[in-house]
Nucleic acid binder design. Structure first.
Length: 466
RNA sequence: GGCGCGGUAGCCAAGUGGUAAGGCAAAGGUCUGCAAAACCUUUAUUCGUCGGUUCGAUCCCGACCCGCGCCUCCA
């Protein structure tokens, strides 16, 4: 089954393939580095990571650009409050973001591009928009005039053809002649960071960086543009207006948006006390891959209710898969091949692939894996699992993990080395042979206290890290 | 008010015009020196409410109720 994705533009699920040379040119909105990213941000970034992996699973190559917004009002304000330069201030949160992504096992996009390294490109683009009468200037600030772009509203499916003023006016500190016009360029204010450019001094508005950097690195028409659903309007709508006014071509063929995340059934907010950064949750003892599993297990177009019960449930689910893998690797099976089981493995692989290709239906993909695991475990218990079935079983897990990436435990500092564990196990086995169960249990408990779990099986003792 | 998403078992959650995947939790059982792991059984006559279409609807249509998002540079 070919990959199908929901396109916000058409509001339909459409078959996807890149427009040229089998390479997906994708742009996704990255973080504004004014603070640590929160768990809601990471829901979207995890979705993007799953998307990347599914695109590759379909044989496509990737050229993926993600921006780092390292200049905006909050950054300027916070940096000033801490008496730091913009660069000093954003370096801290940029690095924190990269560290968080690494912990969550999010692949690095092919290009990570900071806005502040493209100021001149933005100024040049604004100059071109001005040359084609898409802008006006008030007090040194440049605005995009949406009346000059007939397609405005096509992404968010809003009709702006009528009288668009009237709803909210004067929400910005800057002067605009139409409520929905937006700033491309902001004139410098007293004491604020600004750049000297061909269009004068100032700093870029929010939307222009994405248009400029996307076109610079990926060309005038992207295959995919993705982000959180709250970016549909105005951010992505404005990107379309700028980009298409600039190039006269469709800005992106596909637009993908991840739904919101809730916490314990409520919207996440600082005032409710349910606002969490990734660090907060890891600090409570949840491993990053558990968080990753929970974020990835709910299909991206459905709002995700993030709960601590859900995290515990995710951890147990991962254990089940890890236990199965350990069993495959440590148990001994009779020679031969169980054909029926081999067919089930192939079917699971196919179902997994098809589910993901159905607009990234991760929940259904997981079901395919768990069904197979149950069947295989049953066969093992019944003595019907054969040595030659191991490879396909490991193959199912490998395929699963190439997308979900949760089977490898996060390394813990200060744990026993493998050799040490093995020597304890030898001592315990000797104690068991002598029917000194008290000593055997004591050793097992001591190891457990150090995060090592022992299991006695017919094939011998096996162990794993908690 | 406009636009969009959603309401399925205790929790998370898939799904189809023909009678409800999967995970977690709970209870009982098998196995085991004890554990652990694993397996088996049980847990939605029912899919927000009310109408309609249909031989038949959780799935299609309409109305209503509830939750969430955007419409204020918030993923």
């Amino acid at each position: 089954m070919a990959l199908r994705l929901h396109n916000t533009l058409s509001q339909q699920v459409e078959e996807f393939s890149p427009s040229r040379d089998n390479t997906v040119r994708m742009y996704t909105c990255g973080p504004t580095v004014y603070d640590f990213a929160h768990i809601g941000n990471f829901r979207t970034f995890t979705f993007v990571d799953i998307l990347r992996k599914c695109l590759r699973a379909n044989g496509f190559k990737l050229d993926h650009v993600m921006n780092i917004t390292d200049v905006d009002d909050k950054i300027i304000r916070n940096a000033a409050a801490q008496h730091k330069s913009l660069a000093e201030y954003t370096a801290v949160y940029t690095q924190a973001f990269l560290d968080d992504c690494a912990n969550l096992r999010l692949e690095r996009p092919e290009r990570l591009v900071p806005a502040t390294e493209h100021i001149d490109d933005m100024a040049a683009a604004i100059a071109r928009l001005s040359a084609t009468s898409h802008t006006y200037t008030t007090d040194g600030s440049v605005y995009f005039k949406i009346a000059t772009f007939p397609g405005y509203g096509k992404l968010s499916h809003n009709d702006f053809s009528g009288n668009i003023a009237g709803a909210r006016v004067d929400v910005d500190e800057y002067e605009k002649s139409d409520a929905r016009d937006f700033a491309l360029w902001k004139a410098p204010k007293e004491g604020e960071t600004f750049w000297e450019t061909a269009i004068g001094p100032g700093r870029p508005g929010w939307h222009i960086e994405c248009s400029v950097m996307a076109i610079k690195y990926l060309g005038e028409t992207l295959d995919i543009h993705a982000g959180g659903i709250d970016l549909v309007f105005p951010h992505h709508e404005n990107e379309i207006a700028q980009s298409e006014s600039l190039t006269g071509k469709p800005f992106s063929r596909f637009w993908l948006h991840a739904e919101f995340l809730m916490v314990e059934g409520q919207k996440m907010s600082k005032s409710l006390g349910n606002y969490y950064t990734l660090r907060d949750i890891v600090g409570r003892g949840y491993h990053p891959e558990v968080i990753r599993y929970l974020l990835a297990s709910v299909p991206y177009r459905k709002s995700l209710n993030f709960t601590f019960d859900g995290l515990k449930s995710a951890a147990t689910a991962i254990d089940r898969l890890r236990n199965f893998k350990l069993r495959l690797e440590t148990d001994r099976y009779p020679e031969g091949l169980n054909e029926q089981l081999e067919a089930r493995a192939a079917a699971a692989l196919q179902a997994f692939h098809d589910s993901l290709n159905d607009d990234l239906n991760t929940a259904e993909a997981l079901a395919a894996v768990f069904e197979y695991v149950r069947d295989a475990n049953s066969a093992m218990d019944a003595g019907e699992f054969r040595a030659s079935n191991v490879a396909a079983a490991l193959g199912v897990l490998a395929r699963f993990d190439s997308i979900f990436d949760v089977l490898r435990p996060t390394a813990q500092a200060g744990q026993l080395a493998d050799a040490q564990v093995d020597s304890f196990i030898e001592e315990r086995t000797a104690a068991k042979k002598a029917r000194n169960f008290a000593r055997a249990d004591q050793i097992r408990q001591e190891l457990l206290d150090q995060g090592i779990i022992l299991e006695d099986t017919k094939a011998g003792v096996r162990w794993k890290r908690k």
